[in-house]
């Protein structure tokens, strides 16, 4: 079993070409998969921050107007 597994990883002497090819395939697609997820989280976080600031401004209108004048 270990012998056949070894020959599988050896790829008939082409391991240095086959495995990097598959590595590039998985790494590039993984980055492509994660990038929009990070972006979505960032967009929502920024939006929540903006909503929270709006909310805070609504709750303390006097102090805000005093500070701005």
């Amino acid at each position: 079993m270990s012998g056949s597994l070894q020959s599988f990883f050896a790829m008939g002497g082409y391991a240095a070409y086959v495995w990097p090819a598959y590595g590039v395939f998985f790494v590039v697609l993984l980055i492509d998969w994660l990038a929009p997820q990070w972006r979505q989280r960032r967009v929502l976080r920024e939006l929540r921050g903006r909503l929270a600031r709006q909310e805070a401004r609504k709750e303390r209108p006097h102090r805000n107007s005093a500070a701005s004048t």
Binding site: D32, W33, P36, Q37, R39, Q40, V43, L44, E46, L47, R48, R50, L51
Partner: peptide, 26 residues
Amino acid sequence: ASLFGRARADLLALESGKDWVRQIAE
């Protein structure tokens, strides 16, 4: 799957002033 993920993030950013996005954020 990837297109849907990207499109969802883009729609949230594009429509960030709209009510439906605010509801999702909240």
